[in-house]
Amino acid sequence: MTLSLTGVDFTYGAGTAFATRALSDVDITFSPGEVVLVLGATGSGKSTLLRIAAGLLVPDAGSVTLDGRAVRGPLAVVRPGVGIVFQSPEMQLFAESVAADVAFGPRNQGLSEEDAIVEARRALDAVGLDPEEFGPRSPFSLSGGEARRAAIAGVLAMAPGYLMLDEPTAGLDPSGRESVRDIVTAARESAGVVVVTHDAEEFLGHADRVVLLSEGRIIFDGRTEVLVQNPGRFTEAGLRAPEVLRAQMLAQDAGVALPRFALDPTEVASLLAEAWSGPR
């Protein structure tokens, strides 16, 4: 189940005084089981890219295909489709109970009441909310982190073939961020995962592949390891490289001969130690 965007252009308010070009000539392919991180500065077109990939916006030019078939309309309704978790998804919670809210998507997909409830329980488990405890509660009584997880469960319950998340950790405390990261990395077992964020630090260590967006264009699309060896690409995209990479770049500028860059602090420490004890 391959999801492809080919030559996609998109302009908001085309033909009006407010026209804003959001994406230009975007080619990108997503595959199941892969975690792709889409990084870009604010306004670079990340959210637009997700909406188009999920079939919620129709590109002005180019095409979106799922397994070679052209996509028309929201991809959430099919199973397995493309599930999308929006920025601040807790804003979409509405039902009288968490369980009913999470079951909303599967019910819309045409599942029977019982099947929808089964799916809701499974999804609540997957995000670490005990269905017995949280299921009957009002979604408006949840803490910020719990509400975020409940909203993600609402999308997971639709058994998406692709799970796309827009700034999924924004506005959460450190433990909330960590639990969202765990949910996202666990989701790769059943789905292709696409995470969109402007924070290079947060998901880099968990991604197989990174796409850098700048002013609506893709300026990098490759394996995470390749990007890590070229931290200058972050700056080109108007982003700050992760602190751990910046430290290594500074060390290199100061004359430390690093054989390569690494993300894991332990690995960085041993690389630095090696370079240090080398020829002096």
């Binding site: 919620l56 998804p89 979409q92 909303f104």
Partner: peptide, 10 residues
């Protein structure tokens, strides 16, 4: 935004 989010949930 909410309308789009609910459409995405079918």
């Amino acid at each position: 935004k909410i309308i789009v989010a609910q459409v995405a949930r079918g």
